[in-house]
Amino acid sequence: MTRHLVAVFVLLHLLATGLQALPSAGAGMDRRRWRDPTVQAELQAWRARLASVGWAMERDTFEDRLFAIAKGVESGREVVLGPVEPYLSATGSWQSWKMFVAPHRHPSRLVIEAEREGAWSVWYRRGDPDHAWQAAALDHDRMRAVQFRLAWAGYDRHLDRFAQAVATRVMAEDVGVTRVRVGYERRPTPRPAQVQAGEDVPWTPSRQRIVAAGDDGVLRVMRVR
């Protein structure tokens, strides 16, 4: 009898994990992220491909239809997976394998700056050994996962709080710091021909936050861009 029960359990486990692993939109259901230039370029490329086989659509129509399809798929997944998700969640058998599903062609890197006596200096820049404040922690893959996520639209409040946490640590380390700037630098990935030609593709600041103490001593976050 035990052997039969084990067999049933094994088959159910295979079914539940297999179904949950199937492709899903996940965080892609947040349409704010569709405005990202990397995502826009992907959508445009697929729209052009469809048009080339006679299925032309306006951009808005294409995106609305895509969203409707994704919404339908997600609803279907919820119905099918609802009963097994408590098991998958409790046992750590959760399946979501969206690994580098599309290359990010406008990547960002985190930069932390501090102002002291009116002058700004860089404390940390991802990948820059000359500016490596708390690099052991900030360069750990879990922290880089955080940095990667907070660079996207939809994480504004989290980025505010992250900036606040960074400023707290910076100011605790150097009491002379009056303001802390936390944000990203972004650029389109240089194409091979540009690199070979020695062309400089500049980084531009994005999603910056300035943190300073108010009169009451509480750290306040200002969104710059």
Partner: peptide, 28 residues
């Protein structure tokens, strides 16, 4: 399933196959 979700025009055959190059340039 990670492969089935790689639907970017830079991954699939018929595109420019630049996915790995771009991924390897990500500073993160």
């Amino acid at each position: 399933t990670t492969g089935w979700q790689k639907v970017s025009v830079h991954w699939v055959p018929g595109g420019d196959l630049s996915a790995l190059y771009d991924i390897l340039q990500q500073p993160t």
